[in-house]
Computed example of a mutant assay.
Amino acid sequence: MAEALTLPEGYTHRPLTLADADRIAFVMGAEELADTGEVAIEAADLIADWSEPSYDLAAHSVGVLAPAGELVGYAEAYGADRGDASVHPDHHGLGIGTALARWIVARAGELGAERIGMPKPVGSPGDRLLGGLGWEARWTSWVLELPEGRTIPERPLPEGYAIREATGGDYEQAWDVVETAFLEWSVRERQPFDKWLHRVVARPGFEPWNLRVVTDPAGAVVGAVIVQLADEGREGYIDKVAVRRDHRGLGLGQALLAESFATTRSHGAVRARLATDSRTGALSLYEKVGMQVVQEWVNRAAATRGGVPG
């Protein structure tokens, strides 16, 4: 562990295990509810990350326990410059968040990262805490919603192109399309195929229709989208949508969105959402097809050398 946590009297800490996923999702969900008025996190999201074979959860995480023994906070340094931390609102104001921020910076440094960052809703207690500790804003992200009853205008596909449910033989091509597209603006290492496969196809609750592809006249995968159901099936969520660079400008992205949201509605969803950030330049494109911003987040980061200021 990077350093001992200075916690309020009676509070203790320990590394997390996979069995903690439900409780940590509850803690994160309570904080999301207080910050945004709704809950987005699911235990399946944590399990998909934590159960990846190469991921050492015990080495990358810490959980905070209240005097009665229940988990009320956590921090995690995933690797590279990605981290996360959360404290149940009932335990805010005790210095737990500050202690976790210091821990995550130190742990990320031990793991070889020069910076560590995490997203928080703009103006939330977490955002204000990190800003006060000297964490700098890197980029803004937005959650957009296609309200109930609305649809994205359909975009006819060029001749010979088709959208369909992915099969096992498409997975590697879909991974390549998504990773290549996102690495155009995201500064990180390329995610290995087996890790991507684990987090997408092996995610708890995955069904074949959740991964959709667009193929060109030769049958090659040139676009892909990852679709999930959230909020007990009432929401269709686009996790990733990507089109190969040499096939852009043909309306494939809009066609994928329209088809994917229609598919989630056929599975019971009444509204649709996705997220984008200021690095992509895609916000105006989603707004033009009728989506509305419902949440704004900021990604803040700190240098790991020398710890957290203040």
Rank of each mutant, 00 (worst) to 15 (best):
F261K: 07
W297L: 10
A262K: 10
L283T: 11
A303D: 02
L157S: 00
Q254A: 00
V62L: 04
A40F: 14
H267I: 10
Y286M: 09
L285F: 12
A242M: 07
V214D: 00
L18Y: 00
G37E: 11
N299H: 06
E136V: 14
G117W: 10
D231K: 13
R155V: 05
A48T: 02
L229I: 12
S278F: 13
G223V: 05
R155N: 00
E31A: 15
A34L: 04
L33I: 08
G249P: 03
T263H: 11
A106I: 03
I24A: 06
R199S: 13
F182D: 11
R115F: 09
L16W: 07
A19H: 06
A106Q: 01
V293N: 11
P217T: 02
A255C: 02
G97W: 04
S266A: 13
G132C: 11
I96F: 10
S266Q: 14
W139A: 13
I41L: 07
A30D: 11
Q295D: 10
R128M: 15
A43T: 09
E110A: 00
V270Y: 14
L111Q: 05
A220D: 12
R300G: 03
R271C: 15
L211D: 08
E110L: 07
A44W: 03
D20Q: 05
T36R: 15
V243Q: 03
V289F: 09
W139C: 14
P217Y: 02
Y55K: 00
D170H: 13
Q292D: 08
R245A: 09
L100M: 08
L111R: 02
A202L: 05
E32S: 04
E296R: 15
T215V: 13
K195I: 08
V200K: 11
A4Y: 05
S141K: 04
Y161D: 01
G63V: 11
V293W: 10
H88Y: 12
Q191A: 08
H198F: 02
M118V: 04
I226Q: 10
A68F: 02
V64F: 10
H198W: 02
G249Y: 01
A2W: 06
S61L: 01
I47A: 00
A4K: 04
R115Q: 08
Q254R: 06
R248E: 02
A58S: 14
P89M: 12
Q228S: 10
H13P: 03
L197S: 08
T36D: 11
A21M: 00
G233H: 11
D216V: 01
W135Q: 06
G251M: 07
A85M: 13
E159P: 02
T6I: 05
V87W: 05
A301L: 06
R188L: 12
R138Y: 10
A2R: 08
F206G: 02
V213A: 04
A272F: 06
F206Y: 09
R164Y: 08
A137V: 13
Q295W: 15
P147D: 14
